[in-house]
């Protein structure tokens, strides 16, 4: 492809407004959010850290006199037989979910950019899954995937497929919750990527058309590079949100059977809240491990952003 497009692509967002002059104004714009962050996140974050570094029993949780125990809770967590599988499931769950959500979301976003009859309405309807309280959408999925009376197995039986124990077999449970999670994540990816596509002005496409680019070339050489900032943030946010998912899995399988669909997030929840006798310390420790994993990817993102 020749010059028209490349110049246009390159000039966009490459230079920046001179730094020094903007400093004070910049902080003025940022001040509300910084105050807000300090006011509302500092305490919960501190609390989660504190929970993970003390030996809590229900009694000391209420009385507030839990002894400091250093990294004992983390040691407990690492040596627990659930740790290995939970970490593996977290990785599989997150990566597979994101890959499919992003690919499907992007394909749909591109598909919906051309204006055909009903396109706006259909696009809006794609968001309906997001409007449902999770307890309802997750329950609906477990309804459909029920081994004996579920619609999915019924449909498969028409094609002669034997009963699949979607939620109750250790071989399928993780797959089932991933499918449901992809479904829930598609609207998120679709909306952000669609808006991102809308931000790419038509003149670039016109220029590309002048250069004689085909639709496919146009996508890879123009759309995809220009969509990069939005794609990266979508992936990063998708990662953060997917790592955190516990309610969907909890409602569908409780992390079972036998930990087959337990991720770090569901494990953390089970430790702190899923039992008659809560174990807040180890629960918070697992939660903090998740934060560290997300931080790692956050660092990657920021380095990427710097380079651009």
């Amino acid at each position: 492809m020749t010059s028209h497009v490349e110049t246009l692509v390159r000039t966009r967002g490459s230079s920046r407004v001179r730094r020094a002059r903007g400093q004070w104004a910049a902080w003025a714009f940022l001040a509300p959010v910084i105050i807000y962050l300090v006011a509302f996140y500092a305490y919960p974050l501190y609390r989660n850290l504190d929970l993970s570094l003390r030996h809590y029993t229900v009694r000391s949780f209420v009385q507030g006199d839990a002894p400091f125990s250093g990294v004992d809770n983390y040691k407990t967590v690492f040596s627990d037989p659930t740790f290995g599988p939970a970490l593996l499931h977290t990785m599989v769950f997150t990566l597979v979910s994101i890959a499919f959500q992003f690919a499907i979301g992007l394909a749909l976003a591109v598909f919906f950019t051309s204006h055909f009859k009903l396109s706006a309405t259909l696009r809006a309807l794609f968001l309906v899954p997001w409007l449902l309280p999770l307890i309802v959408s997750a329950s609906t999925w477990s309804w459909m995937l029920n081994s004996d009376s579920g619609i999915v197995n019924y449909a498969l039986s028409i094609f002669g497929v034997d009963q699949i124990n979607w939620l109750t077999s250790p071989d399928w449970a993780l797959t089932s919750v991933i499918i449901a999670n992809i479904w829930i994540g598609i609207p998120f990816n679709l909306v952000i990527l669609y808006s991102g596509l809308q931000g790419i002005p038509n003149d670039i496409y016109e220029a590309a058309a002048l250069d004689g680019a085909t639709g496919w070339q146009r996508f890879w050489r123009v759309t995809f590079p220009l969509l990069r900032p939005v794609s990266l943030i979508t992936l990063l946010l998708g990662l953060v949100y997917t790592l955190k998912v516990f309610d969907l899995i909890w409602i569908m399988t409780k992390g079972g059977p036998t930990d087959a669909s337990t991720t770090l997030a569901t494990w953390s929840y089970r430790l702190s809240f899923g039992n008659l006798l809560p174990e807040f310390g180890p629960g918070a420790a697992v939660g903090n491990l998740l934060i560290i994993i997300a931080l790692f990817f956050g660092l990657l993102y920021i380095r990427r952003q710097r380079r651009d």
């Binding site: 407004v17 730094r19 903007g22 400093q23 714009f29 940022l30 953060v240 955190k244 809240f273 934060i291």
Partner: peptide, 26 residues
């Protein structure tokens, strides 16, 4: 995005951590 004061990297970082805190702990 546009004024980019020093220390935005740190702020981005905080924003990320902020989203990772489990809702129930918040």
């Amino acid at each position: 995005a546009k004024l980019r004061p020093r220390g935005t990297g740190a702020l981005n970082f905080v924003l990320l951590i902020a989203q990772m805190i489990p809702g129930i702990i918040m």
